[in-house]
Design a protein around this nucleic acid. Structure first.
Lengths: 154, 154
DNA sequence: TAAATATAGTTGACCGGTCAACAAAAAAGT
DNA sequence: ACTTTTTTGTTGACCGGTCAACTATATTTA
């Protein structure tokens, strides 16, 4: 974010304020930037790496394909992410016995350590977001996102 | 979106469902994809080009710096966007008389034509989003986004 | 069972966004 | 007036996401 010192209020933010896509992109960018900052301060995982570890933590040893199905993520991107994570010793990649196309990925001790190091801050961040909204706002927000997601799919 | 045939419900979407950042990224991706599709069907402007034209339409002839301040956008990215838009004849770039660093950008007839061609569909899309939500949902959604944006800035 | 189709994963190419360095001009501070 | 700081815009480098092609294996179906 090298531009935008302070979005001065005035007549100029009238049309943009109404543009949902624009607002959402902005919000998303800010939240991503914050996530990256928090992760950086707590071990230095990338957001992608964090998400992959969340999934492995949740699913237990699993396949990249399964991970990719859960977090919507390009196969190629995931393949590369897994390669670098494996190279950095965060995860273990083994061949699947039952399916000779598939791999089984699991956390190494080092990966687990990194994961647990970042987890409290990430959890707190999540909590801050939750608590920054009222219960009603939270509920409506999720409902609205569901609806918008459906609308965007057409 | 080459992965994800159908996010099967089940135990797997429990933790992600709660991850606001993740949900927001997904929603944003879908809405962007839709915007690009709609623009593609109506003249083929890119989303960036569309936004720049919206701003020029709104502000009248203006400078790239001003545009960049309104839509939060990297100077470099904007510089390149303006170059290609100028090359495609969508906008006119003139030197500013009063400020010899600055340029004045304005829509050409062709740019105006493209803009007006895409506008109804984009407006309709915006309307669909608005009407897909109740007034209360809309209001709460924007309020929630404001709050989250503030939280993400810390 | 043979052929067609679907899935897992890898790779190369491309595009867009982000960042840092830079030059020119303007504005502010002394 | 002179020096410093800020602003405007361009450019090169990099990184991440997306897409398409391809191989290998598994699954379906004829």
């Amino acid at each position: 974010m090298s531009a935008n010192p302070a979005p001065k209020p005035g007549i100029y933010d009238v049309p943009l304020r109404q543009m949902l896509t624009y607002r959402l992109t902005r919000l998303n960018a800010k939240m991503n930037a914050q996530a990256i900052r928090v992760l950086g301060e707590n071990g230095g995982l990338s957001q992608t790496q964090w998400r992959v570890l969340v999934l492995i933590d949740y699913l237990g040893p699993t396949t990249p394909a399964r991970v990719g199905r859960e977090i919507v993520m390009d196969k190629g991107q995931l393949s590369r992410a897994i390669k670098t994570m494996s190279a950095r010793g965060l995860i273990r990649v083994e061949a699947s016995e039952s399916d000779h196309r598939a791999h089984i990925v699991s956390m190494t001790d080092e990966g687990r350590e990194m994961f647990e190091r970042a987890r409290p801050a990430m959890r707190q961040r999540q909590l801050d977001f939750s608590e920054g909204l009222t219960a009603q706002e939270r509920e409506v927000l999720f409902r609205a996102m569901d609806k918008l997601e459906q609308l965007a799919e057409r």
